[in-house]
Simulated assay, not measured.
Amino acid sequence: MPRRTMTVTRLSYQKRNTRSKWLDVAKLPDNDDLLHFFYSFANSLKDDALIEDDHERYNKIEKLTPFGRTICIVTAPGRFGEEGEVRDVKTGTVASTYGKDHANTVTTHAVLVVPKKGTAALLFTEKAAGVGGTSRLVDLFKTAFQAKYNQFTFRPETLVEGDLWLKNAQLEKVTATLHNYSSDAADKNNPKIVGDLQHSLSPRQGSKYLPAEIWNKLKARQLDEGSLLGFPNNEQPDEVVVRVGSGGVSKSFVLGKEKSAGVSYKLTDAKEVAMSEAAILKYCLEEADDIFGRLGVDWDYTQSVGTWSTEEISRRWGDSS
């Protein structure tokens, strides 16, 4: 199993061409509800709606499960466009082949949580080895939203932790890259190497974090990053990426661009069994309780309980627009 992470997108809307306050997501301009509008839209999409030919990305919604003020979305994202072979990793033998129109997909989950009243909804997106299944869906929904409510702007924003979280976070890993590195050790037995040289520093075995002194000096730009990461000939890396964590949350960013980093919650490591749909929902609801609190939105767990009617479940985009 690939490493699984979770990102969070805040969904909100406001009056177009103004800096007015965010509006209630449970009460859209025509008294519809973002929760039911989103469900009806996703429920109406054709099987090929999420395929991006220009980027050779495949995706399909496998299942939508509404319950209470939530929707669980099971997707199958993947890549296509190349011919190749599927090999047995233990023997190296070819098990099968695939063509340019075949996509290698993985099952991922997403959870939309919309409060009964508030200025923000949250979309949690599970990613497997960095691949998730909601970016195209959100783009299409934004287009539909603004076509229906043309005097308003729908705004999805990746959730970013505040300065206080960053201040309290601890350093998990440092990775630096030197682009277009050329080796001076070239001879007839060691050909000249030109490529990207990457060095990483991780905690020693048994430790979860690197020393706080390293993190503090990196933030203050008081460390020679080339020497710290062991680059040859006093070379300085072109880019330094740090991964920091606090309270079960980890995120990575280019050093010096901390405030633009999106949150990435770690779900499972490589080789660990992926979480079930029920476990994903439970996890998202626990995180939503904390996130909504920081956003000033009233939310409690009981809002996630409640069975939808047959009419609500069967609704599709366009039925009532």
Rank of each mutant, 00 (worst) to 15 (best):
V106R: 05
R19K: 14
N17V: 10
V86W: 15
H36M: 12
I71H: 03
T18R: 10
K63T: 05
H36W: 15
E62K: 10
P77Y: 07
I51R: 07
D48G: 03
L45G: 10
A26P: 09
E56C: 10
G68V: 06
F37G: 00
T65D: 03
K60H: 00
R19Q: 15
T91K: 08
E83R: 14
P66N: 03
D88L: 05
K63W: 09
V111T: 02
E62V: 03
E82V: 15
D53K: 15
T107S: 00
D88P: 07
A103C: 00
T70W: 05
E62P: 02
V89D: 15
D88V: 07
L45T: 06
V86A: 08
N59P: 15
G99L: 06
L50G: 03
N104C: 10
E56I: 03
T65H: 06
A103Y: 04
K100Y: 11
R79F: 15
N43D: 12
S40G: 06
R87H: 12
L28K: 06
N104L: 15
S96K: 07
S20C: 04
K27M: 12
R79C: 07
A110H: 06
V106D: 11
W22N: 13
A76F: 13
K60G: 02
G81N: 04
Y98R: 00
T70Y: 00
R87S: 08
D30T: 04
D33N: 15
T65I: 00
D30P: 02
K100A: 03
H36G: 14
Y13Q: 07
R16E: 14
L28F: 00
S40D: 08
F38V: 12
S40V: 01
T18E: 09
T91G: 09
P29G: 00
D101L: 09
V111A: 07
A49H: 13
K90N: 06
D24S: 05
I71E: 12
D24R: 02
L50I: 10
A76C: 12
G68M: 05
K27Y: 13
L34C: 02
C72Q: 06
D48L: 13
A26Q: 07
G81T: 00
Y39S: 05
S44D: 03
D48P: 12
Y13W: 01
